[in-house]
Each structure stands twice: as structure tokens, then as C-alpha cells.
Design a protein around this nucleic acid. Structure first.
Lengths: 193, 193, 193, 193
DNA sequence: CATGAATGAGGGTTCATTCAT
DNA sequence: CATGAATGAACCCTCATTCAT
């Protein structure tokens, strides 16, 4: 459904693993990690419940794998779009588009990653990727503030949280990415592209 | 912990009911509705699990009660602060302060209300209150747009979702309400108070 | 079935707890701790499987409780019969009778306690009781050796293990305690009573 | 680890089969037959779980093979040492040494064979070997009783169970075979060798 | 009002077993 | 010979719910 694979899987097992991940992302997005049952995930992946354990050591590990998939796929999109050329304003715009595209394309994974309960108590792999993602955004914001594109008063980290919070709310609600981006730019009084 | 009572509770039973509600809000905020067990809630409220059923007909009803408490307390704060006098800019500012105050004061309840999984499948009472809350905000936004305080292009509902999304992200992260409000106003280029 | 209660239980719950313990002892004696299923134990105790958890926190704890019951009941019998009056030979005889009586009366509990897999990895409560039981026996043996009743060469601990090993083999095989005692005394060339 | 092979194994398959048997004996000795998983056995034998099925038709058959290995190796040792020449006392001593040697050399297999849960419900092959082993011992005992080496009152079968029970207890506890033999002879007041 | 006790459904997990490759 | 992958049954355990006391 939402392709977020890190590496191209080849064997039969890799395909099954991906089916399980997609099903898990959908189920967790809908019911939360505690409410998502392995039975439902297995059914959606067209497997028996116990078969999941050939691919993931526990439900917890499966949830963690979904988280890492979500954040690493988002990071990949940010890398592709917000390249370090262009003016701060251009890069900020590109970042907003990348984030909204990730929300739209990874919907289930994104919903899982963004659920507030996940901020804490997650495995190091995920936390490292998340920190990296936030670091990139802090840079974009700081450059835009230095440049006058964004108001200079608030700290970049604060601005980043507000901006991403706004984008997430719109993205998770299913708003059209292009419209949302335009609305954000207008509110922030960015000069027209 | 976070007092969000609608009516003044008298008698021993009402106090117990509130203890259960507070415990439920905390547990749900931390583990989600599916992950919050009546056993843990009862333990936090210093009761036996079965005793909850004297106060709430089912777990579902308890969750609903927490939701209604959260949204109605937020609405009360919005009513108190964003009174229909003053300029659109003043009222917008007041709304932001009210929302952030609610997030800070009702932390657990607010977290429950805001978790994205709750948008759908909730009882009519809650949905009505939620709709009312959003309606107030749409008004505030529309007035501010008409007035030039906010950019006029995007639809008010869109702007409202972005703004509340930004505030929620900061509020749930535990940011100081006053700082957050200043940052938001600066980013939106609102004229100084 | 085999009454091994430490304290007289009164309430309804205590009776159920004992029913579960007896059923668990029987099931473990027959299939080993890993092979004993809570389902079978619950069925024998006329309960639903899950109901066991009201009385014991886990299967592991239930197994431990069976072990402690078995060893503490054996110790009680030893205390009652091998009182510190009389000659070493009399006390040794009394000890043998006490051990055989425990094996006969506690059959399932005894079988569980004696299964070789239980020597290690058991909870401190059990290990302490077991050590105490062995200590009593070492004393009996040492006195009998000092007295000439038993051969003086081997270490008391060694003799104790051999003697208890012999008694357990006969007891678990269901031999008549009196006959077994007579055979042991004859082999050891104890003077007739 | 403990070599108990009946026939000289040639070829790669036979070696694998032996690795599985040894691993199974160790696992069963430690966790009982129900607690020993094919997964753990396969891991110890450095194989995948499914590969065991090339060598044994089922887990039950594997357990049976371990049992037969254990008892037949014990029987072989008894045949070698307690030959039908010499006085009854000499042959009894030789039998004790053979049994203790088997316990020491076959430790895991011996532990499996001796676990009380195995007396019943085992396949005919094993039961026949076991009966034969006990028959030899009964002879040794009866001869020693007829000769006055052992007390004549108790039935030979009874004495045999007591003696083997004593030896097993010491052997499974890891006692030194020579010391144990000396202790047993001293307790039974056998004339010095 | 509150508790102790029990239920039954369902959840996560393990595991013996099968089979195509 | 051996493996990777999958199955399905059984397992231990949790939990919402009920009810006599």
C-alpha cells in the first residue's frame, strides 16, 4: 500500500516481511499500538498469526520496525527535496513540500510515527533517525530566520515544532498537500515563489 | 491532579468518580485507550477493579467521560477568555492563550482529546462539543482574516487546523504557554500587543 | 487429595487456592513442570484457566508454591517424629519413618520436590527450607556415625544423600513404608528395635 | 559430549544424528522432555529445526532414541564389568562400579533415563532393555544375599531398588564414583576388598 | 459503596510439524 | 542433506465484565 522500503527486498521472505509491515502500519494507525492485534495484522497480510514470528521476534519489535520505516522514509524524502542549494526561502518551501509528501505517501507509517505516545520509550535506532530528521529541520529554520524569511525572535527549535505540528495536523487530516503548502506560506507571509 | 470537573462534586461518591476520571485520563494519555487497563486505572485511583463499575457502566463509557471532560473544560476556558469584545487581533490572541492554558492545565485530558485516533467513532455528546469548539475557532480566524490580521487567501477551516495543530504540538511537548504564544504571534507577523 | 497445608485456610479463596495447589502437584508429578499445562490444572481444580491468576501471579509462582508446600510439609513431619530425645539409632529410625511417611502422604508434592531438575534454579524460600531439611538429616547421620550405628568412614553428607536417595526410590515407586524401613535397617545392619 | 553410540557411526549423516542425540540428551536432562524444544536442540546441534526431521520422524522418536541410547550403554557397561566369574561380593562391587561409571560417563543420557517420569509410557524397546538391566541387578543382589554378603531378609527386588536409588542420587549429584562406591560398601558392611 | 472471586474471550507467543526449494 | 518459510494447535497470560457478599 504505502511503499516505504529501505532496501529492495528480493526473496519470498522479504516480500512477506513487507506485507506484514504495511498491515501493521495500517492497524497501528487505526487502533494504536496496544489496540492493534497481531491477529488482525496477520489477516491483513494473509498469514497465520504465528507466522509473523518468523519475521519479527515480538510484537514490540514489529512496532519498532514500523516506526523506523516511517521515519527513515521521511528522512529520505527530505534529503531528496531540500537539497542544500538555493536560497533559504526556497529550501524552506522544499522542506515543507517534502514533509507533506511524506505524510501523504506514507500515510499509515506517518500516522504511527507522529502519534504523541511515541515520543518516549522507543528504541535507539528510531530515536537517532528522529533526532536527525529534527536536526535537518532546525537548520532549515535557522537559515530562514537569519535571512529574514521567518521572524527572528523565537528559537529555531520552537519554530520547528510549531511548523511541523501544523503540517502534521493538516497531513493527517488528509488535506491536499499543495493547498496546505500554499496556506502555510501565506500565513507566514513568505514572498510568492 | 488536573481538575477538569464540570460540576462541583459533593459527597464521597463524586470524589471517587473524579479520582477514577483523573486516573483514566493519565493512563489513556500514556498508553492509549486500548492500552489503558481498568486494573491500572483502579490501582491509581486506589480501588479494586470491579468497583469502577459502580461509577461507570463500562470502560467505553469511562473513556467517553474523559473525552467529554477534556473538551468541555477546554470550551469553558475559551468562553472565559476570548469574549466577543475587542478587536479581531485581540480575540485571536486571547484564543491562543486559552488553548495553550487548557493544554497546560488539563494535560492528561488534553492529550486524550487530541490523540488523532479519537476524531472518529466517538459518542454524539463529545462530537457536538468538539464541533462547537472548532466553530468558535473558525469564527476567530475568519474575523482575523477579514481584518487583515491573518492572510486572507486560505480558507478559515484550513487555517484553524494548522494553527491548532501548531499549538497542540507545542503544548503536548510541555512548552511554556507564554513563550509559545509569543513565538506564534511573531511567526504570523501579528502587530505587537 | 494430599493435605500439605501450612496454615488452616478459612475463606472461600483459600479453599480454591488449595484445590489449585493439589491439582498442580498432581499434574507436575505426572508431566514435569514444563509439561503440566495450566488448562489441565484448572480443569482438575474445576476452574477456568484464567481464574488461576487470581490466586497465583504466574505458572512459575504456582510451581514454586507447590515446591514450598512439599518441602515444608516434609520438614514438619521430620520435626514431629525425629525429636531430639532417644539414642542416635532410635532417632535415625524415626527419621527414616518420617521421610517415608512424607513420601507416602504427600505423594504428588514429594514427587515434584524430588524430581532431579529441581535441585537448582529455585526460589530462595524453597532452597532455604531444603537446606534446613538436609541439615537435620546430616545431624542424624553424624550422631549415628559417632555412636557406631552407622559406619564411620564416609562423610555424613555423603551418607545422607545415599540414604535419602534410597528412600526416595522406594517411596516414589509406591513401596509400603514399613517394609521399606525394615529393609533399609536390615541392609545397614542396625540392631533390631 | 557424552559418547553413548551403539554402533560405530560412519558418514556425515551419522555424525549429525549423534550431534542431535547428544544435544537432545542435554536439553532433556535440563528441562525435561516436555520442556526440551526442538528449536533449542537444533541450535545446540548447529542445525535448523526442520532438519531434525531428516534424522528422526518426530520429537517422540528422538526422545525414545535418547532413552534407548542411555539404557543400552548402561547395560553394555554392566556386561563388561560384572562378569559371571568371581565371588558374589566381587560381582556386586563390580556392578556398583559399572553403574556409577555409567552415570558419570553418560551424564545427560543417564539423567534422562533415570528421571522418574520415564518409568511408564515408553516404547517396548526401551522397556525391554530396562527390564533386562534390572534383571541382572536382581541376580547380583540375590547371589549376594544367598552368600551372606547382604542381609537376607528383604526381597532382592526391594534391595535392588534401594541400592540403585542410592547410587543414582550420588551419581546425578556429581559425586566422585570411587568415593561413592567406598561409602556404599562401608555402609553395607561389606568386607574390605 | 466497595470488595473478593470468578468468568470467558481474546491476546501474544511457542512449538512440533510440513514442504517446496 | 539441509534450509527457509509457513502452519495450526496449544500455551500462558490479560482483561473487561459480572455478581454474591
Amino acid at each position: 500500500m504505502t511503499g516505504a522500503s529501505t532496501e529492495v527486498g528480493r526473496g519470498k521472505g522479504d516480500l512477506t516481511r513487507r506485507r506484514i509491515l504495511d498491515a501493521a502500519a495500517a492497524e497501528i494507525a487505526r487502533h494504536g499500538p496496544a489496540g492493534a492485534s497481531l491477529g488482525a495484522i496477520a489477516a491483513a497480510a494473509e498469514l497465520q498469526t504465528g507466522s509473523i514470528y518468523f519475521h519479527f521476534a515480538s510484537k514490540q519489535r514489529l512496532v519498532e520496525a514500523v516506526l523506523e520505516e516511517g521515519i527513515s522514509a521521511s528522512l529520505r524524502r527530505l534529503d531528496e527535496m531540500a537539497v542544500p542549494t538555493g536560497t533559504p526561502a526556497q529550501r524552506l518551501r522544499a522542506g515543507v513540500h517534502a514533509h507533506l509528501r511524506a505524510l501523504a505517501e506514507l500515510s499509515d507509517y506517518a500516522a504511527v510515527v507522529l502519534a504523541p505516545q511515541f515520543a518516549a520509550r522507543q528504541p535507539p535506532g528510531f530515536r537517532a533517525l528522529r533526532r536527525e530528521y529534527l536536526r535537518r529541520w532546525t537548520e532549515l529554520i535557522a537559515d530562514a530566520q537569519a535571512d529574514g524569511t521567518l521572524a527572528a525572535g523565537p528559537e529555531p527549535g520552537e519554530v520547528r515544532d510549531l511548523l511541523i505540528g501544523a503540517l502534521n495536523a493538516a497531513g493527517l487530516a488528509g488535506q491536499d498537500p499543495a493547498r496546505t503548502a500554499d496556506a502555510v506560506f501565506a500565513l507566514l507571509r513568505l514572498p510568492p515563489c
